[in-house]
């Protein structure tokens, strides 16, 4: 379907926020789901590019929805997308894939949201849904967000998470803001103090590069808590048909576009 571009602006260094007008199809969309975007009508780029739902907003009066996409221009497709202007349209399929399992996210448990780089994109939508679910009760102390970036300039969504009432912690690789080091090291520091011994009292939701998610999965296992991770792989169809986007799991190769992108961290064979 062709969605109208409402705005497409640069936020920071190569990071863009795209707003699309959304039809009703997106009303029930879940955090972690994505849209598969056709950037050009020609053969270059040929394949669609998957981009997560950063926010879905149907709060406007006329029932008109907005889909937001937060993306980093890394190659030809995303760079071309960055040049698209409002009132042009973008051809998308979606919402696609299996999002975060909100049902198993126990509201009584503490939820750690861990973002690595552009992995923050789907996690804002997740935090927003968690905040909405607590219907007015503050989420402070309940939803803890860790935002990891290379440098201060690349820290995304800090304000937005705070606005939702989440506890926000920042880490940068160069120490220019917040904790100096990896976001998983920060997670390690924050975890033990919040974990009553032997009890699975928290859940982790994470998105970022695969090596980071592997560490998150390991920490979750050691602390005996559940973790949901959102994974990436190159995609063909995005519809579960071509088997091009698989990840090795305890039950064989699973399709990231259809069985994921969100998986239980314990199911993934990280060295596969």
């Amino acid at each position: 379907m062709k969605l109208e571009i409402l705005s497409n602006v640069i936020l920071k260094e190569d990071h863009y926020l795209l707003e699309l007008s959304a039809p009703q199809d997106f009303k029930e969309a879940l955090p972690g789901q994505f849209v598969h975007c056709r950037i050009e009508d020609s053969c270059d780029p040929l394949l669609r590019r998957p981009l997560s739902l950063h926010d879905v907003d149907f709060s406007a009066k006329q029932g008109l929805g907005i889909v937001r996409v937060l993306y980093k221009a890394v190659g030809r497709g995303t760079q071309l997308l960055a040049s698209r202007k409002p009132s042009m349209s973008l051809d998308v399929l979606g919402p696609l894939g299996k999002g975060f399992d909100l049902k198993t996210l126990d509201t009584k448990k503490k939820i750690f949201i861990v973002a690595g780089g552009i992995g923050v994109a789907p996690l804002f939508f997740l935090a927003k849904q968690l905040a909405a679910r607590s219907s007015g009760r503050p989420v402070a102390g309940k939803v803890v967000v860790l935002v990891g970036a290379k440098t201060k300039e690349q820290v995304l969504c800090e304000k937005e998470f705070k606005k939702l009432g989440c506890d926000v912690h920042i880490s940068t690789d160069d120490g220019s803001k917040g904790f100096k080091g990896r976001v998983t090291d920060l997670l390690k520091e924050l975890l033990p103090s919040t974990l009553p011994a032997g009890r699975q009292a928290l859940t982790i939701c994470a998105c970022g590069p695969k090596p980071m998610l592997a560490v998150v999965a390991d920490l979750a296992k050691k602390n005996n808590c559940q973790a949901q991770v959102s994974l990436e792989e190159f995609m063909g169809c995005g519809l579960g048909a071509c088997l091009g986007c698989v990840i090795r799991t305890t039950s064989g190769y699973q399709r990231i576009c259809h069985d994921g992108p969100v998986f239980d961290a314990g199911e993934i064979l990280w060295r596969g």
């Binding site: 780029p45 394949l47 063909g236 190769y253």
Partner: peptide
């Protein structure tokens, strides 16, 4: 079970 990923590339 198929081949080791990555499996597709443009």
């Amino acid at each position: 079970q198929g081949t080791r990923p990555p499996r597709v590339y443009e």
